[in-house]
């Protein structure tokens, strides 16, 4: 009888452990990992490792708009559905990664080819690198050494880096981007925080429009055009909605309260 009771008890304990919300803390990415996107729509089907895309390098070269409007990369990781064939036709990554484009006095390697053999494996693994010990061409430590520092994210204050002329993100690709009239400079504005006593949020509309244009944020991320009409809070943002679409994924994370809550309480 005692054995049965002990067995049932053990069974409950084991089931309890198995079903428990263990609450494993999500690992905060290291500066060089921040903004990293793993793309695995078709890679493993093709017996290749998933693609590891480092946002930090690309964002130092291009504005968000070039890739997320002109090249039509979706804002949500993996939702673009890039195929090797698309790249080899010269779209998506293949727009620049075509083996012809010059960068830093050399040709940008071609992303994908219609035919490939063992000799191309090294080139494939430059992107298809998840779980592989691939030496990256661009070293984050060397790149970030002279950049203005930031507490979180990549540890780089990208806005300041641009202001100081350390980065010059390209906003136009010949033959791909559309010649648009000059964007009207938007005025920065402040938003009321929900929590009493928190400093007001100063939203840099100017900086956001310069990097993103209008259509990256409106209406997909922010449906209300009039200030304050899109209601959201920190929980939504932490879940990756609204500001959290970028701030927490690529742009500085919302852990850095003072970056947004900057206006002192009157």
């Amino acid at each position: 009888m005692k054995k049965i009771v002990l067995f049932v008890l053990l069974l409950f304990v084991a089931a309890g452990i198995a079903m428990a919300q263990t609450g494993v803390k999500k690992k905060r990415p290291l500066p060089y990992e921040y903004g990293r996107v793993v793309i695995n729509n078709y890679s493993e089907q093709a017996h290749l490792a998933p693609v590891v895309f480092d946002h930090w390098f690309h964002r130092s070269q291009f504005t968000c708009r070039v890739c997320h409007v002109d090249l039509a990369f979706a804002m949500k990781a993996g939702s673009t559905g890039i195929k090797a064939e698309d790249n080899s036709k010269g779209y998506y990554c293949g727009t620049c990664h075509n083996g012809k484009k010059d960068f830093d006095n050399r040709k940008v390697f071609a992303a994908c080819s219609k035919e490939f053999g063992h000799k191309d494996l090294q080139r494939c693994e430059r992107c298809h690198s998840l779980g592989k010990n691939v030496k990256k061409e661009h070293d984050f430590a060397a790149f970030s050494a002279n950049m203005p520092k930031e507490r979180f994210g990549n540890g780089i204050n990208w806005e300041k880096a641009e202001t100081l002329g350390l980065i010059k993100p390209v906003d136009f690709l010949d033959g791909v981007s559309i010649k648009r009239p000059k964007l009207k400079i938007q005025k920065d504005f402040s938003l009321e925080p929900k929590v009493e006593g928190m400093p007001k949020i100063v939203f840099s509309h100017k900086k956001h429009t310069v990097w993103n244009g209008c259509e990256v944020c409106h209406p997909e991320i922010f449906a209300g055009i009039k200030r304050g009409t899109t209601k959201y809070g920190m929980v939504d943002i932490m879940q990756g909605k609204y500001c959290g679409t970028c701030h927490g994924a690529v742009a500085f994370p919302v852990l850095d309260c003072q970056r947004c809550h900057t206006e002192p309480v009157e």
Binding site: K89, G90, K100, K101, D174, R180, P181, C214
Partner: peptide, 28 residues
Amino acid sequence: LGPLHAWPEVPFKQEFEDICSRTSDAES
């Protein structure tokens, strides 16, 4: 020597560019 990242030509490109070039000044 043409644009090294130019996409292949599509027949509707002119109209597409005419329309979408207006996103920058849509507000006005």
